[in-house]
């Protein structure tokens, strides 16, 4: 609740956001693409032409045709159907793991940057150790402790992503904590928590959103590698990353098996990215009100 409500309230916020998006047309493209991807995932059970795990050895490795719009893989499964179903897992694992990693990393990064001294050494020391662990090893460890399933896969990816966000959050925190308004807050008797959450966080959120959109792409890729070595989603459940891996067996003769899911990853990443830039601008009052 705002003390000084602006005329229009929510409607105005939406209008301002639309104006910022209008200035940077690519954010509209990003939004549209992303909504398209999400609706494909949601509607997969109704719009996919075949059962994604139905094998049809007779039609294996057939190129794109009227029956199979994007062809079939080495088990004769319809690639389009697998992509549509795979979108559900890939999009949700990618988004949720990055959001989790972002939340944890940002909290730790701001804490390290704002408190400095021992907090900084301790937190960033641990983060550096985490960052040094290869993603696959991290996956192995998490799965060894918690057991292999989709949730633990998401946690493993979040753990890989978190230290990156700690670093991304820490650097601007250090520069912002030296701005006078933070000092003014202390002079006003604000608690550290209020300064970190209410004053520093909003000022670094823009950067975090942009980086987050980039990392979703990486998360989709990590999910692929972990699934490939059997630490995540088990075959035959389709995921985009898993499909690319499977396609490698026939990459020279029938490259489309890998290329089509690759294109979908590419479009998703692009969509997140374009939208991320727009969101960053939309939360910046300087751009929103001018």
């Amino acid at each position: 609740m705002s003390l000084f409500p602006k005329a229009g309230g929510l409607r105005r916020t939406i209008r301002d956001t639309i104006r910022v998006f209008n200035r940077n047309k690519t954010s509209w493209a990003g939004l549209v693409l992303l909504l398209f991807m999400v609706s494909l995932a949601v509607l997969a059970p109704w719009i996919s032409p075949y059962d994604p795990i139905d094998q049809n050895i007779l039609e294996r490795l057939s190129p794109a045709s009227a029956e199979h719009l994007l062809g079939t893989d080495h088990f004769g499964r319809d690639i389009l159907s697998r992509i549509l179903w795979g979108a559900r897992i890939s999009l949700s694992v990618g988004t949720i793991s990055v959001l989790m990693g972002m939340a944890v990393g940002t909290v730790l990064g701001i804490l390290a940057g704002y408190k400095g001294k021992y907090w900084d050494y301790m937190i960033m020391g641990v983060m550096d150790v985490f960052m040094a662990i290869p993603t696959l090893l991290m996956g192995l460890m998490v799965v060894a402790v918690l057991g292999p399933n989709l949730v633990n896969l998401t946690i493993a990816i979040a753990l890989t992503v978190a230290p990156r966000f700690a670093r991304i959050a820490r650097a601007p925190t250090i520069s912002i904590k030296n701005r006078d308004f933070v000092e003014a807050g202390r002079a006003m008797g604000f608690s550290d928590l209020r300064i970190m959450a209410g004053h520093i966080f909003p000022n670094i959120l823009g950067e975090l959103i942009v980086m987050g959109s980039l990392w979703i792409a990486t998360a989709v890729r990590i999910e692929a590698s972990l699934s490939f070595i059997g630490l995540g989603v088990k075959p035959p459940t389709p995921t985009w990353g898993g499909m690319i891996r499977e396609g490698f067996q026939n990459i020279l003769s029938d490259p489309w098996i890998s290329i089509y899911p690759g294109i979908f990853i590419l479009i998703t990443v692009l969509a997140f990215n374009m939208l991320g830039d727009g969101l960053r601008d939309a939360i910046d009052p300087k751009l929103r009100n001018s």
Binding site: F4, D180, A184, A187, G189, F190, S191, G198
Partner: peptide, 28 residues
């Protein structure tokens, strides 16, 4: 209380003037 030299740095760019002035009163 304190007044700073650089008025740009002294105010949180993400807060409205109303919020900047109301928040300390809320906190106390």
């Amino acid at each position: 209380q304190i007044i700073f030299q650089d008025p740009y740095s002294a105010l949180n760019p993400r807060q409205t003037i109303g919020k900047i002035l109301a928040e300390p009163l809320h906190v106390h």
